[in-house]
């Protein structure tokens, strides 16, 4: 299963995109982590109301979801790199790629439910 003579269906994306995405998503998560840490310290969280209060406003829900999307993309690139390094049979690798994407999709759906119930 090759595209052209060299490119593998389950290979890398043969360019800068994944490399750059890995760094951009990392930066997004760092900024989010700093914001969350700041809000946590400022709210002096020691009960449910203070903690839930952080995630109640819509902008924080959206920011959290975006950070989770960044996490998902970041994890996808990282885990895919690992499959590409250690798993050589194309069929097995494709199955693992699919499993990884499905797992991340499921986690994202769970995250949406958690956030929008607050």
């Amino acid at each position: 299963m090759a595209i052209g003579s060299k490119r593998l269906v389950v290979g890398a994306h043969y360019g800068l995109r994944s490399w750059l995405a890995q760094r951009v998503t990392a930066a997004v998560m760092i900024v989010y982590a700093i914001v969350l840490l700041g809000l946590w310290v400022a709210a002096r969280v020691h009960d449910y109301d203070a903690w839930a209060g952080i995630f109640a406003p819509l902008p924080m829900k959206i920011a959290t979801l975006l950070a989770f999307a960044a996490l998902g993309y970041h994890a996808w690139v990282g885990v895919r790199d690992i499959w590409m390094d250690y798993v050589k049979p194309v069929g097995v690798r494709l199955a693992l790629h699919l499993a990884t994407i499905l797992a991340l999709g499921a986690f994202a759906a769970w995250a949406v439910q958690i956030l929008w119930r607050v």
């Binding site: 449910y48 769970w110 995250a111 958690i114 956030l115 119930r117 607050v118």
Partner: peptide
């Protein structure tokens, strides 16, 4: 996260 945010 689910436990922490769902309810008191």
């Amino acid at each position: 996260l689910d436990l922490s945010l769902t309810s008191e």
